[in-house]
Nucleic acid binder design. Structure first.
Lengths: 202, 202, 202, 202
DNA sequence: TATGAATGAGTCTTCATTCAT
DNA sequence: CATGAATGAAGACTCATTCAT
């Protein structure tokens, strides 16, 4: 008699969930396939059936994050909207992404490895690129062409703008600070937009 | 024939140096006492004679960083200096600290562990506090009292100001970006100071 | 070519046998899991798959002894048999148990740890209770009620009687003396029974 | 300025005392020179100055026990004293020795090693011989010649007699039972003497 | 003599990974 | 696919012993 066991794909999800939990708590090196399989309620061999090895399992998680990032940051300059509105939209998009605990957790997991100067660290680092910054820089470039803002370097400005968001909503959270409330978030957005407008507005 | 036995204190330094190197590359969990002792050219037991265990060794390194941080961030409001000058001084102090590769390395080492949600991570996190932010917040408070700046929350402003530095000179470096050149640094300082003055100056 | 893989249960037996051998020679502290696994022709990790740790492995062996003890000492007073016969039977049962080298070996292993005043020593000590003495004391009690023997304390008498056996057949063997021959054994039994009868018989 | 430090011989005593404590708790293998030196408040090197190595230190302790044993068991047959009196004296001598906790402790320490079937175990075993039994056997021989007792084998009788004492006052204590009270002791002596007299008296 | 420091070998235990079922 | 069992290699930490001062 075989019990109605969760399907292949269910197990895969269980494993990924367990792995995220473990990597979150103990990092890549500190997590063991043993602990992950136990946490996922599957045999260790099953983990290996789904993922070639520990690194691959980690890379899969990193990939989940990458996909979410790629999805999240897509905006382009729109002549018919005001600068204010567009800046606000961009900031909010960034903030929305960072206001999801799951995203923060994934970022924490991956960050820890990216900082490392070893093999897998470099591998992950290469794979992750700051889409957000690039997108925003592009937007600023267009705004400049459209004669709405005045500045020298778009990438510099992009770093300033996004940095002003992240200084409140990302970097502290990286180290464990609580996610911003809706209200706090709006305040941060307004301040960032205002600062850009005041400093670089025409 | 007796070989020139290096002194106790020399070995301790060698061990710390080797440990920093290892932790930098592989993080806490990924580094082995074996590798550290080999790197330091001492026997493993010698490492244990100097440091009770791996965690203690790590905490010692974290402590080195903490001491440097405590030393580095000391400024108070000075009525006889211009706001511009003082903001610039503070920014430069921060930047100087972050322009030292050794400091960045130490921060990277400690950050990786601080992000972790396990025992030692929490321990380290508790021990490290953001002196810089507190100092700067205090300074802004005084500037407000002195009627030179106008704003609501000093801690908010402090996060904005320091965040503007760190967005260029710290967070990217955390992920491996090169340290800012002298010229780039000055540009960042000027931009940050300017932004604060423009936005909150009276 | 696949080698004839011995079954799980076989390996377990091999490990236990090897462990007994090691503990016999070197005691708990003096035996290494390395030596045990080598002796058992399995990898060290396999030993850990079967037994959580060294202590658990030892406790399993202690448990084997305990089971044998529990099995061996079961007799109750029988009105229809003569005192002489019953005393002789009890003594012989005890002696039979002690005439098995395997039993002596197990006792030696466990004794060494029981004498120790540390954690595992106390644990083992608590687990082992002298069934034999209790059973015999009960028997004497019944014999007294049946008006066949006259004495004050049954536990005192029990200690005397069993002590007289053990003085020849157990304590010397503990220290390495050879097991009693059949003939010697019978002589010891006769002397013990005789002494009890002569001294306390009615 | 050199502090008034305890003399050589004091340290030696401290070390021995500490070693006894450690060996008592953890046996030979389980005790570390580190723990012993710490317990004795001397440096590890000092321990090695006094005793060549761990084994030698242990053997010294075994020797202390041996000396005490040799001192304690000296009696010879005395025609002018009654059998009763002499048996009682012998028994009491044995009991006195076993009523000293320090002696029991030493015996426990040494026993653990003697039971072991390894190098040092055999060494210790060879060194320790049962003086008491030999002395008593001799005494019985004389008593037989003097026509006061009737039996076949003096060594058998000796084992019975001493065994009757030890069954109450030694073997249980080996496993941790409390030392007999004065009153209990006298009862044991009387019972043992009585049994011999009743069974083998002329 | 006393000691702080050093060390090679060894201890228990865990790990990532494989394989036959 | 899923798994229980197996393993070589490595990890943290301890030990008995030595040696220069």
């Amino acid at each position: 008699m075989k019990r109605n066991r969760p399907l292949n794909i269910e197990k895969r999800k269980d494993i990924l969930k367990a792995a995220i939990q473990e990597f979150y708590k103990n990092g890549f090196e500190g997590s063991s396939m043993d602990a992950i399989s136990k946490e996922a309620n599957v045999s260790k061999a099953t983990v290996y059936n789904h993922f070639k090895n520990k690194e691959e399992l980690f890379l899969e998680i990193a990939n989940i994050l990458k996909c979410r990032l790629d999805e999240s940051f897509k905006y382009s300059y729109n002549k018919s909207k005001s600068i204010n509105k567009q800046l606000t939209d961009m900031a909010r998009k960034e903030l929305d992404f960072l206001s999801c605990q799951e995203n923060i957790t994934l970022i924490q997991i991956v960050t820890v490895v990216m900082i490392q100067k070893n093999n897998i660290g470099e591998k992950i680092l290469a794979q992750m690129t700051e889409n957000c910054m690039l997108m925003t820089a592009q937007w600023f470039e267009e705004a400049k062409k459209d004669d709405k803002l005045d500045f020298e370097s778009s990438s510099f400005l992009s770093t300033q703008f996004i940095g002003m968001i992240k200084s409140f909503a990302f970097y502290p959270q990286l180290y464990g600070a609580p996610i911003l409330s809706k209200k706090e978030g709006e305040k941060v957005i307004k301040a960032a937009v205002n600062m850009i407008k005041t400093t670089y507005g025409k």
